[in-house]
């Protein structure tokens, strides 16, 4: 019988190894799987390459993972935001690498990776410093740069509801990178607020089919990053 439920966030992230590439969902705090990230901090895997849109805020969640020295390299589109101090300090000290990727290119690289497409051409970044050193071709008199599909060893994603097959639905703009990251990782780990019986989700409304999901952890009342930052919380 297929049953992707994991008993805890700690159990779900136990296989993450040193040097792994980990995709982490979220746009700012919306969709950031904060309990899974905290479990990864407890777990302690190091020298991670993290693929995610931002770099976290305060001293919790993604920012705490970076502050804990577990991340060697980040691939993201917007590594600074309000209350974001951890990444900028480490970056200026040369202690963390950054591959800056335009947001749409980041999304398409993840989607392509998940769909078995090794590379593609896009007009985004043509004529800018972010196209330097990249292969270029012209199609119908327009220039394009080649970008590579991205795959990961693990994806950590937050969704709203799942069933034991791993079928997922999301909440509002917290969906963001979740569905494509589920597709692009060898092992996808999802935290959800609610688990329902098989058949409890309308097949017409499922956003991520369970084939893209490996483990599901129920976190009924996830912490809100901005609230933790406001309270001055620090993890661990």
């Amino acid at each position: 019988m297929i049953d992707k439920r994991a008993s805890s966030a700690a159990v779900a992230v136990a296989a993450v190894h040193d040097g792994a590439t980990v995709m982490i969902g979220g746009f700012g705090e919306a969709g950031s799987p904060i309990e899974l990230i905290h479990a990864l901090i407890d777990h302690g895997a190091r020298n991670l390459t993290v693929v995610t849109n931002n770099t976290g805020s305060g001293q919790v969640g993604l920012a705490a993972l970076i502050a804990n020295g577990q991340v060697g390299k980040m691939l993201c589109s917007y590594p600074r935001s309000a209350n974001s101090t951890v990444f900028p300090e480490l970056y200026r000290q040369g202690k963390i690498q950054l591959e800056l990727v335009p947001q749409g290119t980041l999304a398409e690289r993840i989607r392509a990776g998940g769909a078995g497409i090794p590379a593609f051409f896009t007009a985004t970044s043509v004529g800018t410093v972010l196209a330097k050193g990249k292969e270029q071709r012209s199609f119908a008199d327009r220039d394009y740069v080649m970008e590579y599909g991205l795959r990961a060893d693990f994806a950590l994603v937050k969704a709203e509801k799942a069933d034991r097959h791993g079928n997922l639905i999301y909440n509002k703009t917290a969906r963001n990178f979740g569905p494509i990251m589920c597709m692009a990782a060898a092992t996808t780990i999802v935290q959800v607020k609610e688990l329902v019986e098989a058949g409890g989700l309308d097949p017409e409304e499922i956003v991520t089919p369970g084939i893209f999901v490996n483990r599901v952890v129920v976190v009924p009342h996830p912490a809100q990053e901005s609230q933790l930052v406001k309270e001055g919380r620090c993890y661990p």
């Binding site: 335009p102 749409g104 985004t124 800018t128």
Partner: peptide, 12 residues
């Protein structure tokens, strides 16, 4: 700290 977001995608 370089940060581009979606700006290059939008203009392209």
């Amino acid at each position: 700290i370089p940060a581009v977001g979606g700006a290059m995608d939008l203009v392209a």
